[in-house]
Write a protein that binds this DNA or RNA. Structure first.
Lengths: 334, 334
DNA sequence: TTGTAAGCGTTATCAG
DNA sequence: CTGATAACGCTTACAA
């Protein structure tokens, strides 16, 4: 920066002013001269120095607690990150991604915040509810701005989520209206906030229809993959009194369930109905096309990023929440 | 850090030494005392200050040039990023993601590097070959360490890729052996290095079998989605002399092609064979199960990250390349 | 409108 | 082994 100042024959102060778009503090001529000098020298401001001085990084951290090693291989996670990424880019923020396992309580997840690498954070948490709560309390206690993708938090916490519970309710009610009475629910072993909501909605619908809940039909096992879904659904279908409908925690699991059914010579949806959640790109194109609940992951990411940046820039007061509607996609599988 | 030093009754220098694991520069007793002081004060090193002083960020940038707004919604991209992310985490690097559109040549993509936000970069480029080459030359000229996911580069450039060409050759040869002579090839409108290789392999196999290439059967249109794949494949299937096999640029496109076929009352694979690339999670579970070429995206990411970090840490000389084998997955669709 | 100088929290140098 | 001191490149008072 000093070089630029020298070359343009001004003070570093003026160069700094230009970089920070305080144009009213200089004549147009000066501005042009400095701009030219910056160009000629290929000058680029040093983010570290700026951060050190201003305690502002221009970076947002996406903090994820996930069981799997390949956490970014999950389609829903990706959709959310994509939404955040687009907004961040448009509003000139960088995005830093950091993952931790849902193991022992540790602040390692917050390194980007603690080390002054990021101004604020997105919390995408899985694991037991108390552990999630601990993370949220911790980051709040540290005084950072953040938003959680978790509606089961204190109202003061910024939160973004979809109406998974209502979606599950609608889906299961639909199945019940189609005459199903033995409805299974499957999800991964690792707890996720949205899955808890889906499960709650499932129970809501059963209760409302007066169907007694059968724990044998609720399986929380494996991971979020089609292969895992096939194994879990297979076990359910091998039950002496097998379910007539399987509500899978997401579309990948549903895909596995369809496979498990066909391996057993069962037709979908005639012998067993299968439904999923998320409406991933492939859902409409598999056979039979998947009945599912569309979760607007990309839009969730956008909403979270917009809210957080607004708050950082003083345009929104903390304590906001966003709940996005979901859409029941009735296709052929259920 | 000064607070810690005061509390422990040592100099800041000693604290710095501890933080940087130069344990031989202090007695065990000092070390314990400083560690305790750090703990009590909840001290955390400031990354900006360290970066400013040491010109090292501990951050790697993933730079992607992609047409789509939702660039992170692409499964292959995600797999690669997941592989990078895991290695980065294990070796204590943060990952910064930055995207740009393949529009006018601009250095905006390199902001993380130029602004000293990252030490090195992964280049995941799409777009016309000259544009990709321009980006690579540019970042090389700027003197940063980087690795490209692109084998069509000068040998001095670090590159990581899969053997897409050989995979395509094997796949198409298989189809030809099954008696197909009218083989279509589809891909998105936006060029990608790996797709160029797949297309080249397709042409290799045709040439070897003495089949004359028919440009009418090669469609580069739309985006990487099942819906887009259905449209493109549909057009091909409506041709007066329609192909008997469709080699889709990836599995999503293949899924769309299967849908397009079934909409036209064509059976897969009896009336038209369909094959894809990538072997996404769902490929094995759709109906009919997809014949595809497995591209080890996650492993590509790991290889790139491992190589780049090794190089940064002086354990590998620049100019390395990694080519990972692919696997032909013969299932029922072709 | 421009210039000067202090200081952000580290690390490196060099003397004790 | 420890302590003082000078950078790193920028922002921000405050002075001119």
């Amino acid at each position: 920066m000093r070089d630029v100042a020298v070359r343009a024959g001004v003070s570093v102060q003026t160069v700094s002013n230009l970089v920070n778009e305080r144009f009213h503090l200089m004549t147009d001529k000066t501005r042009a001269r400095v701009a030219q000098a910056m160009d000629e020298l290929g000058y680029h401001p040093n983010v570290a120095a700026r951060t050190l001085r201003s305690a502002r990084t221009g970076t947002l951290a996406f903090l994820i607690v996930d069981e799997g090693a390949r956490f970014l291989a999950d389609p829903m996670t990706d959709l959310v990150v994509a939404g955040i990424g687009d907004v961040a880019r448009d509003r000139d923020y960088a995005l830093l991604i950091r993952a931790a396992r849902p193991g022992p309580r540790s602040s390692a997840l917050f390194e980007p915040l603690l080390g002054n690498r990021a101004d604020a954070a997105f919390l995408f948490l899985s694991g037991p509810r108390e552990l999630r709560a601990w993370y949220i309390e911790r980051v709040a206690a540290l005084g950072f701005d953040f938003v959680a993708f978790d509606h089961s938090t204190a109202p003061a916490v910024n939160a973004v989520g979809a109406d998974d519970r209502e979606g599950a309710r609608a889906l299961v009610t639909h199945l019940i209206e189609r005459g199903h009475e033995r409805l299974a629910f499957t999800a991964s072993a690792a707890p996720w906030p949205m899955v808890e909501l889906r499960h709650a909605g499932y129970l809501d619908a059963l209760a409302k229809a007066g169907i007694v809940r059968d724990p044998a039909l609720e399986a929380f096992a494996g991971v979020w993959s089609a292969a895992s879904g096939a194994a879990v659904a297979g076990a359910l279908l091998d039950l002496p009194n097998r379910p007539t409908a399987i509500v899978a925690g997401n579309d990948l699991l549903a895909l596995g369930a369809i496979r498990a059914a066909s391996e057993r010579g069962l037709r979908v949806p005639e012998d067993v109905a299968v439904a999923g959640f998320d409406d991933f790109d492939f859902a409409e194109f598999v056979r039979p096309p998947l009945t599912t609940v569309r979760i607007p992951g990309y839009e969730l990411g956008r909403a979270a990023a917009t809210g957080l940046i607004d708050q950082l820039e003083g345009r929104r007061a903390p304590g906001w929440r966003v709940t996005l509607p979901v859409e029941l996609c009735l296709r052929e599988s259920a």
